Amino acid sequence: MPLGKDRLLPGLLTAALALAAAFGIHRLVPVLPAMTLAVVLGLLAANLPGTAVWVAGRARPGLDFAGKHLMRGGIVLLGLKVSIMDVLGLGWLALLLIAGVVAASFAGTYVISRLFRLPAQTSLLIATGFSICGASAIGAMAAVRRIRHVDTVLPVALVTLCGTLAIGVLPLLVQPLQLTPLAFGAWTGASVHDVGQVVATAQTAGTAALGIAVVVKLTRVLLLAPVVAAAGLHQRFSAARAAGKAAAAAAPGSLATPEPGRLPPVVPLFVLGFVAMVVLRSSGWLAPGILDAGAALQDILLGAALFGLGSAVRIRTLLHTGSRALLAALAAWLLIALLGLAAALLMTA
């Protein structure tokens, strides 16, 4: 049953106010990404006595709407940041290395999460977010695998935490590792989760580091579509196989062909929208003003979504049930940092 505007409005207005605060703090302290601040403000709103009742009550329908539907709009517009020409400009060796980092970090993070006895769906979302592009990738994977919105909250919190950790830790390692600005930028782009976190980390080493970091990161973002499509195909085949087994078990010996149930889409519509935006950006038809407006709108939609997701996290519950998840996330973060560093050194050698 669709939600009425009167039920959505309190939560959407709350998200808008929080987003204005996040952008304001980011303007004052540029090293703090606005998207990370949106999650942090959501966490605070969910756990401070003065606001917890509000975000769990009247504001909840609108915040849940933001976390799910505005997230999808943000993913579509994320495609406007990706130019295929910029990606190809890295060269085939770099592209193979980046694809290898994504594949190895996805598989490694999934295995680590399962070793820490996390549920398969949670492990899948953590692996997707860590290896590709943070919360946006988690939202896309949750849609294609039909994972409940509430089950995305913990993975988003973990990917935000570890991405924020990278902002503080990676720049401290430039001198000990004797990294050039290009190597540091490539490392940042290959291993940090969210685009905003990549910018905040790489800019500490100058414009050369920032330039290559953004292109490497957006190459990882481009892999969102094929990864989600592969997950969609797997989900579709699994659903069809399960339906066939159920029909066979219900009517043993029957020769009738079972009626197929409604199968999940191979690729959600909003992921196709993401691909369309990548094509548009790469065509060169869009004026810089349109691209800037698209980027600003994408930040607004994604920021509101992240505040909505953050406002669903209860710290007490997270500490009680999420200690294994936190350890798994930190181990995965270390794995991706090492894989990214190796790829960056090879790229810039």
Rank of each mutant, 00 (worst) to 15 (best):
W285E: 09
D151L: 14
T188P: 01
C133W: 00
A249C: 03
L118S: 05
L44K: 06
A304L: 04
L263N: 06
L338V: 14
L44Q: 04
T188I: 05
A213L: 07
A45E: 10
V31K: 14
A107R: 06
D64Y: 11
A66M: 09
P176R: 04
L255K: 13
G91E: 12
I300R: 03
L335Q: 10
W285H: 12
G294A: 14
A127S: 08
A246Y: 03
S191P: 00
K245H: 13
A107N: 10
L115A: 14
L179G: 04
A15R: 05
V192F: 02
Q121K: 13
L8Q: 06
H193I: 00
A22R: 04
G24F: 11
T164H: 07
A305I: 05
G91D: 14
L223F: 03
L125G: 05
L297I: 09
A287M: 10
R145T: 05
A213C: 03
C162G: 08
A246W: 06
A276Q: 02
S136A: 15
P176E: 04
A52L: 09
A276H: 06
I25W: 11
A331L: 09
V53A: 15
V82P: 01
S136H: 01
G24H: 11
T14R: 04
G185R: 03
G73R: 01
A186L: 01
L224T: 01
L272R: 01
G163N: 08
G232L: 02
L177W: 02
F270I: 00
L286W: 07
D151S: 15
R324N: 13
S254D: 15
S131R: 06
G308P: 01
T219A: 07
T122F: 12
L173S: 07
G139S: 00
V267T: 12
G308C: 00
P33A: 10
M71K: 06
W92G: 15
A287E: 13
H234S: 13
R145M: 11
